[in-house]
Design a protein around this nucleic acid. Sequence first.
DNA 1: GGTTCAGTTATTGTATACAGAAACTTCCAT
DNA 2: ATGGAAGTTTCTGTATACAATAACTGAACC
Lengths: 251, 251
Amino acid sequence: MAEREADRSVSQTVRAQLALRDLILSGSLRPGERVSELQAVEATGASRTPVRMALVRLEEEGLLETIPSGGFMIKSFSERDILDSIELRGTLEGLAARLAAERGVSVRDLEPLRECLAQIDDLVAQDPISIEAFSSYVALNARFHALLAELSRSPPVIRQVDRACALPFASPSGFVMAQSALPEAHHILLLAQDHHRIVLDAIENREGARAESIMREHARLAARNLRAALKTRSHFDLVPASALIKTPSAS
Amino acid sequence: MAEREADRSVSQTVRAQLALRDLILSGSLRPGERVSELQAVEATGASRTPVRMALVRLEEEGLLETIPSGGFMIKSFSERDILDSIELRGTLEGLAARLAAERGVSVRDLEPLRECLAQIDDLVAQDPISIEAFSSYVALNARFHALLAELSRSPPVIRQVDRACALPFASPSGFVMAQSALPEAHHILLLAQDHHRIVLDAIENREGARAESIMREHARLAARNLRAALKTRSHFDLVPASALIKTPSAS
DNA sequence: GGTTCAGTTATTGTATACAGAAACTTCCAT
DNA sequence: ATGGAAGTTTCTGTATACAATAACTGAACC
């Protein structure tokens, strides 16, 4: 039943996938909780078939896992899983940066990256950074990391980096959200910007090993901050990322 | 073949996925070729719904890609894509080895690995290695690499390593198959065994950086051999033909 | 002869019906 | 009251029907 004709261009499957992902990331569903098909059908408005396809895709994405007896449940991650996922992302981004440096990129290719950095600079200029500026930062940061991966010009590598960033807490901006409560937030942002600048310089100068190690270190900064954030705020429920953004005073 | 009535315990989806994967890996379907649902239904015996789910999973696995107008096609890889995938695997396996070393593993944990190595030693003892011994080697080698990834004790890392090994040409034994025609095949096997031994020693002695770099080098050996095999362009009967396409993919 | 448009075919995306299984409830017996 | 068993209920897995769209074929017109 076509109740709404919004977004007729996109398939029901994609729409269901987006809707369910938002539902998971917003924290409406707790880790370990079973996600019923009927419930998903009701939430998305699509039929069972596209919902099922969306669930399969989300499982491959790492947000869900199959229940042996049947169906899917929200995947739950230990603190170590989360930290390992960040290390993983750093490793993959390091590989991408090294490949970019070794293969060589033109100054023209670096231009959008530098532009992105400049915009971030504008944002972090204000010391007590506003909430709106913060979500802009998140978007720009994600964009920078995506562009960086693409510099490798290697579809397999880009693909894996994307996968690694799909987990909300492992995403390049995940730590930013988690750290928003930290007193030294501004200092960390500046440090991250330094990393960004260094990696671009390393790539430009074809210093592959340096580009790689700085990206690894960059991820470790994220891991450290996340750990600190987890320590200060005792609530450890998977860091519902978008929730942290929208409602900074949650819980 | 002859797995038509087997395993009624597993779901149709899984069976279809296995069957289709074999079909793709066997080279029956050329890269870029569209894989029709009806055709897949006929080949697997399952209905459209499980076939469709299997196709989605295989796409996430990297063997298929979606056609914008609808449906799926066999993914095609350029030579560089293949080499990059091997480098990627090496990077991930390096991470796994490093984590294992840093975290520390008991001698007991290493036992199955060493047992595996001993069995491989037995196989490579014969200089002109037989075909049967070769397929045993492939299985044992895959097992060793899988066990090694598990030493990291990190589900996210294990997961990604598995993914990276899913591509047939990037799998740890892919190069073995490709190199089977090479004159220096035996020498290469011995070299690979050296790598295997070294990485275990490094892990046992908690030398994380060494464990990591040796696994990277190990993958580069594979890449080099594959490149040599591609150059000579000898028989690729053992290697999944769909991988070794000569089409210089656009972009 | 080439190009375009229309009719036809085939294939995908979606919805739904059906069967089997797992979980929950209820009732009986110890 | 508690444990177990049977019935019920809900859910998933599978099959299939239907609709819309993309691809193909053929013919007519330029």
